[in-house]
Design a protein around this nucleic acid. Sequence first.
DNA 1: ATGGTAGCGCTGCTA
Length: 257
Amino acid sequence: MRIVTWNVNSLAVRMERVTEWIELFSPDVLCLQETKLGNDAFAHDVFEELGYESAHHGQGQWNGVAIISKVGLDDVRPDFDDGRGEPDPDARILWATCGGVRIASCYVPNGRSLDDDHYTYKLDWLDRLAADLDTNTSPADDLCIVGDFNIAPDDRDVYDPAGMIDMTHTSQAERDKLANLADWGITDLFRQHHDEAGLYSWWDYRNGDFHKRRGMRIDLLLGSASVADRTHRTFVDRNARKGKQPSDHAPVVADLR
DNA sequence: ATGGTAGCGCTGCTA
């Protein structure tokens, strides 16, 4: 079973690239972020023609997350269910069960800067994710929480760690939130198979950063122990960042037995 | 070198 996360930075612009990628890589479950679509504009029929069911949680202009599956799409639920009784103001998380695995497609807030309200929102958002997991799932379940976390887990995941101290994506507080999730029972599947630095999933459009290999690894697949045990291969498809009108993110793939 | 690119949508915000 192949599970993929990909921040497409506008599905309207990227639709042809996404369908071509699906035909090349045949994911079982493809989780998208930053569709930037309203729910009415999401082309379920295009994915259906390729043999996939799809669910979308969007708001238009910004954000928007989707799950596209050819191994079932059950118990679909947008947003948080963490007992707080107040919806996320943004469309940033969508849950579904696919092929027996409880999956979430997440677009974690960027944070902007450490003194910005958006950074407070980011830390709170990660607490809500943890509370939702604790409320509705168990670490003993088959879980795969994926998406654009906007956090580089450690300094191997940043091209210039010395130049990025006290910035969003690398600050200790947000890395601690990721560590809390790991302590609860979902871990970074990519790091099971790769120790080296410089394996990024996002590169800024500016300054030719992709070609200079200046990026960050911020797109993650977090799996429970059972999913981690089944994962035999993980990789980033850097080729998807090349050519005409790429997203600034590349797809990250986990293959499960 | 305090810029640069991309997307949304129409002016400046977001990333």
